[in-house]
C-alpha cells in the first residue's frame, strides 16, 4: 500500500504559485526526504498533505484515502510535527499529552505515557508548565506526543532543528520504528547528513517544482 500519494498538487496565492504540479509517492515503510531552499514550498506541501490547506488543483491520498473527501479518516492516521510544537503554555507536560491524545480519541495507561516521557528525558519535568520549557524541551515533548499517537503516516517539518544530539538520536529511532511498523515518513529538512541516514529516497523542491535526486548525491551536493 502507498502511504502518501500526491498527484499534480498545485497551490496558488493570487498570482504567486507556490507549488506546481507536484507528483509524489511515499510507500509504506519508506522515508522520503524533501530538500530545497527557503521559500521553495516545502512547508506548503507538508501543510497540504496534513489537510491544513487545500491544493488549488490536484489531489492526494493518504493510505488510499482521499485527502479532501475523507479528511477525518485521514487525520486519524497522520501526524505533522511542525515548528510550533502544538503545546499549551499553561498546561504542564503531562496535561498537554493527555489533551492531545484525548482529541485523537486515544486513552493510554499512565505507565505508558510515563515511559515515553522518560524516553525523551522530560519525565522529571512532567509537572512543569510548558511556559517554562526551553525550545528543545518543547520539541522533545512534541516528539513524545507523536510517539504515543503512533501515526501510520508521519510528516516532519525541519525535525532536526533545535534538538540536541541525544534528541536527534531519539527522533531517528522514532522514525525507524515508524518505518518498521509499516508507516510512511515524509520529512522536509536542510540536514542532508542526518536525512541520508534514514531516508530511502529524496527530492528537491525548487520554485514549487519537485525533482527526485539520487541518495548518494546527498553526501556531495548541497541542495538548500
Amino acid at each position: 500500500m502507498i502511504a502518501i500519494s500526491g498527484q499534480e498538487i498545485s497551490k496558488t496565492y493570487g498570482y504567486y504559485q507556490v507549488l506546481r504540479e507536484v507528483n509524489l509517492e511515499v510507500g509504506c515503510g519508506e522515508c522520503y526526504a524533501l530538500f530545497g531552499p527557503n521559500g521553495a514550498g516545502k512547508t506548503t506541501l507538508l501543510r497540504i498533505l496534513a489537510t491544513l490547506q487545500r491544493p488549488t488543483t490536484g489531489r492526494f491520498e493518504i493510505l488510499g484515502r482521499d485527502g479532501v473527501k475523507e479528511r477525518d479518516t485521514v487525520r486519524a492516521t497522520l501526524l505533522l510535527l511542525a515548528h510550533g510544537c502544538h503545546l499549551y503554555e499553561d498546561l504542564n507536560a503531562w496535561e498537554n499529552v493527555q489533551f492531545a491524545l484525548a482529541l485523537r480519541g486515544l486513552s493510554l495507561a499512565q505507565r505508558q505515557v510515563k515511559a515515553v516521557l522518560d524516553r525523551v528525558a522530560i519525565g522529571a519535568f512532567a509537572d512543569m508548565k510548558v511556559r517554562f520549557f526551553s525550545a528543545g524541551m518543547k520539541k522533545r515533548l512534541a516528539l513524545a506526543k507523536a510517539m504515543l499517537a503512533q501515526p501510520k503516516v508521519l510528516l516532519l517539518d525541519e525535525p532536526f532543528s533545535t534538538l540536541d544530539k541525544a534528541g536527534i538520536e531519539i527522533l531517528k529511532q522514532f522514525i525507524l520504528e515508524t518505518l518498521a511498523r509499516g508507516g510512511g515518513v515524509l520529512m522536509a529538512t536542510h540536514n542532508q547528513e542526518k536525512a541520508a541516514e534514514v531516508a530511502k529516497r529524496a527530492g528537491v523542491l525548487s520554485h514549487g517544482a519537485l525533482k527526485p535526486v539520487p541518495l548518494q548525491d546527498l553526501k556531495t551536493h548541497d541542495f538548500s
Binding site: 496534513a50 479518516t73 499549551y88 503554555e89 482529541l103 485523537r104
Partner: peptide, 14 residues
Amino acid sequence: LQNDCLEFLQMSPA
C-alpha cells in the same frame, strides 16, 4: 496561536 495550537485543533480528527 501560541505554538500553533490552532493548527493542532484543525488537524485533529475530533
